[in-house]
Computed example of a mutant assay.
Amino acid sequence: MFLALRELKHSKMRYVLIGGIMMLIAWLVFLLSGLANGLATDNGSSLKNMKADAIVFQSEVKLYLHRSLLPMSKLDEVKGVQGVTNAAPLGMLTVTTKDSDGTESIDATMLAIQPESFLAPKVIEGQALAANSGQEAVVDKTFKRHGVKLGDELKIQSSDQTVKVIGFTTGQTYNHLPVIFTNIPFWQKIRFAAPGSDSGIQNPISAIAVQSQQDGITDMLNQKLSGVETVTRDVALQNLPGYKEEMGTITMMLAFLFVIAAFVLAVFFYVLTLQKSNQFGVLKALGASTSYLAKNLLGQIFLLSLVSIVVGAGLTYLVAAVMPGEVPFALDNGVVVVYSVILLIVSMLGAMISLRRIAKIDALQAIGKVE
């Protein structure tokens, strides 16, 4: 590391520019990872945070909650399957609401639950839903950005119903929309207001959330029950409309960034190695081994990459602190660490071309003694 540190100190501007490029690449990687995690959270945090192991959908609806309809009687059938420790009904509807002043429209996802079930959200302000809650709701704190306060009434457009906000929760979004938690009867009144919209199903619900500690409970439910398709909560999350497409696009962008980082660093350090061929030749003539020179080059790249990645990560956390709440951005510390390690590995791999060049340098040719 002696030579590496001496050179970094001597050619500050050269290595500041290289480190700056590496820092920008790392910064972009971390920003994209935060955006990917934010989009995933914004799309299905209600499913992700749901205390359920599996979800029972109507069969042949592609696991789309908005298309699934099951009779409430199916709940007793689910509870009767061996291995099921608990089950709760779930209703879903996308709605547009008007604030109490009627001046602003707020798109939202209405999730209907039994207030005493394990699907009830944790309330951070106000009070939770009760069994006799009627036209009351607990809403995600995102509604506060629109000026909604406790006690406000939200008008459900396309119906004559209103819902009173009695509590706020957090981390509850579905299809990139804040969630309104209400009771099953009120949801049914809105969802099936049009004649025939219930498809002739008695006391309909959208799906059933299941808790179980038994392996293979999804297969067991599919075998025991007719007209249903049961999947784990994670599979249901993966099948949210647009979820795979969003994650796939950002994952591809991240992969290209890692490849670009490898090529950029490989080219930079290869060019520098070519420029320093004479110096390396002199050092070899003085007795420096190829392994010694290689260790110094790798140490130089490792130190430069590490500092650049740390600075990039720091800038990302700074951006996250000032990011507007409307932007779906969420940093995962574990992902930041993993991507930092990958960037370090990519940087070291990019140095392999330079190491090959160092190994081929002939001391006499490099110092111009032999043509």
Rank of each mutant, 00 (worst) to 15 (best):
A131L: 01
S117N: 07
G134A: 14
F143W: 11
D140Y: 02
G126Y: 02
E136R: 03
L119C: 09
E125D: 13
V123R: 01
V123F: 04
E136L: 04
Q114I: 02
V138Y: 02
A130Q: 14
N132F: 09
V123E: 01
Q135E: 15
F118V: 08
G126N: 04
V123G: 01
F118P: 03
A137H: 07
E125F: 05
A128S: 13
T142R: 11
S133I: 01
A137D: 10
L119T: 06
E125T: 09
A137V: 14
F143Y: 12
N132T: 09
A120R: 12
A131V: 06
D140I: 11
Q135H: 15
A128P: 11
G126E: 00
V139K: 04
A137R: 04
D140P: 03
N132I: 04
P121A: 10
T142I: 14
Q114S: 06
A131I: 06
Q114V: 02
A130H: 10
E116P: 00
V139A: 07
V138N: 01
D140S: 11
A120I: 08
P115Y: 09
E116I: 02
A137G: 10
V139M: 10
G126R: 01
E136F: 00
V138A: 04
Q135D: 15
L119F: 10
F118G: 07
T142D: 15
L119A: 11
V139W: 00
L119S: 07
G126M: 04
Q127L: 07
G126H: 00
A120P: 08
I124D: 08
Q114A: 03
A128F: 02
L129I: 13
G126I: 03
I124C: 03
F143P: 02
K141D: 07
A120K: 14
Q135I: 12
E136P: 02
A128G: 08
A128E: 00
E136H: 05
G134M: 10
A137M: 13
P115Q: 10
A120E: 12
E136C: 08
K141F: 06
A120V: 11
A130D: 12
K141V: 11
I124W: 05
E116M: 00
E125N: 13
F143T: 05
A130K: 14
V139N: 03
Q135S: 15
S117W: 05
G134F: 03
I124L: 03
T142A: 15
